[in-house]
Write a protein that binds this DNA or RNA. Structure first.
Lengths: 150, 150
DNA sequence: CATTTGGAGTTCCTTGAAGGAACGCTAACA
DNA sequence: TGTTAGCGTTCCTTCAAGGAACTCCAAATG
């Protein structure tokens, strides 16, 4: 085996990486999220090899984060995010927040988010699903869960 | 070039991937976050090739998310997260939330988070840095920012 | 003093994924 | 009857990942 399979590990990080951790996959999801749904668009925008794009799209469809559907009587297809896929965009939004803070430099962030609820330009924060207060790596204890390995 | 360089793209997702997007890097960060700081520990726990582990650790140190420091008079080193690295764990916490929801199955989540502030078992949610309300992919408009490409 | 031990890599070989260009297939259209 | 556009597939080359063996160094041990 040339690349280790993460899907069987008892770790939600590893399993999530099995879905979207291969090279290009997050960028493909990004493009589809912002409205590029067709093979040619994706290939041109990313500059990715057509072979790899085919593999990645098939994999994302297999894993249920994308849906492939015809948009013409001719054999033409578009790729759209499923509900599962839309939730995966959360991961990208946090990557954006981190990259904007640590890697954007003087030029500033390449894109901005405007939040519908308040209308303001903002970014994403992590909060606790229970109490709503901030929740970052230093604010938690990590405990074994029911699905832990033996 | 065999693998495309993402670091020069005008995209915070691509730039973040340049830091932690290579195979194994997120799992290395996970292990270091939960307290495995030494080369032998990491290698044994992950089952990663020693060569690749060396490359990944060097890269993460280069990018400023890990610090390599001696813990003995002998040539022994440990790897610890910098502040920049601790913030990168946010990305992993969101991966955990998604993986727990969509991939954990009947067995349930492999690990649980207990939030210091409220003492409850919970998971991470995304909220708006401005108004504090939920902020997910459907709740935003994406606009070009100052660092956008030409 | 010579030898062993353990941590931290380094080297080297094999396999297979990524890059890249060319080719194929299908339905409409000129 | 070509031609075109969209969507892949094939094939070849290069380089990264897997894996095992090897090196280096300082301390501990006999």
């Amino acid at each position: 085996m040339q690349r280790t399979d993460f899907s069987e590990m008892a770790c939600s990080i590893a399993r999530t990486l099995d879905v979207m951790g291969e090279p290009w996959s997050p960028l493909i999801l990004r493009d589809i999220f912002v409205g590029m749904s067709r093979f040619e668009q994706l290939q041109a925008d990313l500059g990715i090899s057509r072979k790899v794009l085919t593999e990645r799209l098939n994999h994302l469809v297999d894993r249920g984060v994308l849906e492939r559907r015809p948009y013409d009587k001719r054999p033409r297809y578009e790729y759209v995010l499923t509900g599962k896929g839309l939730e995966l965009i959360d991961v990208l939004m946090v990557m954006v927040a981190w990259g904007d803070k640590w890697l954007a430099g003087k030029a500033g962030p390449p894109v901005l988010y405007r939040h519908h609820a308040c209308g303001e330009i903002s970014h994403v924060e992590l909060s606790c699903s229970h109490c709503g207060k901030p929740m970052h790596s230093n604010d938690i204890d990590v405990l074994p869960g029911p699905g832990a390995a033996a």
